[in-house]
């Protein structure tokens, strides 16, 4: 894809590679972390900090300027998903690479109905909503009891950089 088309894609709300505020954790650390670590995709300077204020371990660093993009100390992250449900932009995800040999556990924010249930198959969607595979719902939680659910989906590890949403097949 040309640079211009990549820019257009990003300008319409699709992440097109790592950039400030949307950086993947170091792979070696990530692969060892039981419970997973947070992936944040928040590349624009906006006045917002609930990811930091909701973080119980100090993994999401304090904001010097509330408009800065978030920074993470992945060593401290436990994959608890409190930020996943607190983020007003639904821009936090947790991915646990220790789930099984082939599969990772993807913990994604979800605010649609109907809610999927444990054991249900769901479509794995990329950042443009294209189906890239199938996953199995392992758990559905509501960490802050505020109607933002976190759906835990097991799906192939090969999808770690692209799988960010689900479609519940009715």
């Amino acid at each position: 894809m040309s640079d211009k088309n990549m820019d257009m894609l990003f300008n319409s709300g699709v992440l097109t590679g790592e950039r400030e505020g949307a950086i993947l954790p170091p792979r070696e650390l990530w692969e060892k972390k039981k419970g997973g670590v947070v992936i944040i995709e928040c590349p624009q300077r906006i006045p917002c900090n609930p990811c930091h204020t909701s973080c119980p371990t100090g993994a999401i660093l304090p904001f010097e300027d509330i408009n800065n993009t978030p920074k993470v100390n992945w060593e401290k992250c436990t994959g608890c998903t409190l930020c996943v449900s607190a983020c007003p932009g639904l821009a936090c995800f947790v991915i646990d690479l220790t789930f099984s040999e082939e599969n990772a556990l993807y913990k994604l924010p979800y605010e649609m109905l109907p809610l999927p249930v444990k054991g249900q198959k769901v479509q794995c969607l990329d950042r443009e909503g294209k189906s890239v595979g199938e996953g199995t719902v392992e758990n559905v939680t509501q960490p802050r009891k505020d109607r933002t659910h976190v759906v835990h989906v097991s799906a192939p590890k090969s999808l770690v950089t692209i799988f960010r949403s689900i479609r519940v097949v009715k």
Partner: peptide
């Protein structure tokens, strides 16, 4: 806000 767009883009 970019994140508002991202969350609807990823739903297709």
């Amino acid at each position: 806000y970019w994140v508002h767009a991202a969350k609807i883009r990823r739903m297709g």
